Lab assay of single mutants.
Amino acid sequence: MEQGTVKWFNAEKGSGFIERENGDDVFVHFSAIQGDGFKSLDEGQAVTFDVEEGQRGPQAANVQKA
């Protein structure tokens, strides 16, 4: 798993970007967020995640709040 920080997340659209510790920013969709309840992330929040190849390039998967 990688570690990173939420660069921004739009709760209305359900997507945003995570700033990786090593590498380019990666797209995140709300469906990749693990946990119960409303799936959203806050700017500056620390997260851990896997990276998968999506239709438009790398994207975060199995996102967990650190």
Rank of each mutant, 00 (worst) to 15 (best):
K13A: 09
F17R: 04
R20E: 02
Q55T: 13
G57L: 05
Q3I: 13
S31G: 06
R20I: 06
G37V: 06
Q45L: 08
E2S: 10
F9W: 15
D36Q: 12
G23W: 04
N62H: 08
F17W: 11
A61I: 14
V26I: 13
K39V: 07
S40Q: 08
D25A: 09
E12F: 13
D42R: 15
E21M: 12
D24Y: 10
S31A: 07
K39G: 04
Q59A: 07
G54Y: 07
G16K: 00
G23C: 07
A32E: 03
D24W: 09
A61P: 00
D36M: 12
G37A: 07
F49E: 00
G16H: 00
F49V: 00
A46T: 11
G23E: 06
A60S: 02
E43A: 15
D25C: 15
E19K: 15
A32G: 07
K7P: 00
F30M: 05
G16I: 03
F30C: 07
K65V: 13
G44I: 02
F27K: 00
G16W: 06
E21V: 12
D24E: 12
Q3F: 15
K7V: 04
V47A: 03
L41G: 04
A11K: 15
H29V: 04
D24A: 14
Q64Y: 10
Q3R: 15
A32M: 06
V63R: 01
G54T: 14
S15N: 10
G35T: 09
D24K: 13
G14D: 02
K13E: 07
A66P: 07
N62Q: 05
G57H: 05
I18W: 03
G37T: 07
F49K: 00
A60F: 02
Q3D: 06
D50E: 13
G57S: 05
T48L: 12
P58I: 09
G44T: 03
E12Q: 14
M1R: 15
F38K: 06
V47I: 05
K7C: 08
F38C: 11
F30T: 01
I18G: 00
D42Y: 15
I33C: 06
R20G: 05
D25V: 12
R56S: 10
F9S: 01
T5N: 08
Q59C: 08
V63N: 00
K39N: 05
S40P: 04
G4C: 08
N10W: 09
E52W: 12
Q3K: 15
G16M: 04
K39T: 07
G14N: 04
F30L: 04
Q34W: 10
V6E: 00
K39H: 05
I33Y: 02
F49D: 01
F49Y: 06
N62L: 06
W8A: 03
Q64S: 10
F49L: 04
G14A: 03
A32C: 06
T48E: 06
A60C: 03
D50W: 15
K13F: 08
F27A: 03
V26A: 00
E21C: 14
T48I: 11
F38Y: 11
H29S: 05
F38R: 07
R56Y: 15
T5R: 14
I18S: 02
D25M: 15
T5S: 08
S40C: 14
R56W: 15
S31E: 02
E43D: 09
D42H: 15
G57Y: 07
H29M: 05
S15H: 15
E21N: 11
D25Y: 14
E43G: 12
Q34L: 13
Q55N: 11
S15I: 15
A11H: 13
G14K: 01
D50N: 14
I18P: 00
S15D: 04
Q34R: 10
A46F: 13
D50C: 14
D50G: 08
G4W: 04
G23Q: 08
G16N: 01
K65F: 11
T48S: 09
E12A: 14
G23M: 08
V51N: 02
G35D: 08
F17V: 09
Q45V: 09
F27L: 03
G57K: 04
G23A: 09
A11L: 09
N10G: 05
V47E: 02
V26S: 02
V28Q: 01
V63Y: 01
K65R: 11
A32R: 04
I33K: 00
K13Y: 08
N22W: 10
R56F: 15
F9C: 05
K7L: 05
I18N: 01
Q3N: 12
F30W: 14
F9A: 00
I33F: 06
N10T: 05
S31L: 07
G54P: 02
G23L: 07
A46G: 08
D42G: 10
F49H: 01
V6Q: 02
P58T: 09
F38V: 08
I18T: 01
E19C: 15
R56Q: 10
S40I: 09
E21G: 09
V26W: 03
Q55K: 14
T5V: 14
H29I: 05
F27C: 07
Q55F: 13
G16T: 02
D25E: 09
L41D: 02
K65A: 11
G4N: 01
A61C: 11
T48A: 06
T5W: 15
V51L: 11
T48M: 11
G35H: 08
R20M: 08
D50H: 13
F17C: 10
Q45K: 03
W8D: 00
E43V: 15
F30D: 00
G4E: 02
D24H: 12
K65M: 10
Q55C: 15
F27I: 02
D36R: 11
K39S: 06
V51H: 01
Q3L: 12
N62W: 06
S40R: 09
A32F: 04
V26Y: 02
A61S: 11
V28T: 04
D25T: 11
K39F: 06
A61R: 12
Q34M: 13
Q55D: 12
E12D: 10
V26F: 05
G44E: 02
E19H: 14
G4R: 01
Q59E: 08
A46M: 12
V51S: 04
V28F: 12
G57M: 05
S31R: 10
R20H: 04
Q64K: 12
R20W: 08
E43C: 15
N22A: 09
L41E: 02
N10S: 10
F9Y: 09
F38T: 06
V51F: 07
H29G: 04
D50K: 13
A46D: 08
G54K: 07
A66S: 12
F30Y: 11
R20A: 05
A32Y: 04
F27N: 00
V63P: 01
Q34A: 11
G14M: 02
G37F: 07
E43W: 14
G54N: 08
Q34N: 10
E53V: 13
T5I: 14
R20Q: 06
D42V: 15
V63F: 01
V63Q: 00
Q45P: 03
K13S: 10
V6F: 02
I18K: 05
N10F: 03
M1H: 12
K65E: 06
K13N: 09
S40G: 07
N62F: 07
H29P: 03
K7R: 10
N10P: 00
N62I: 04
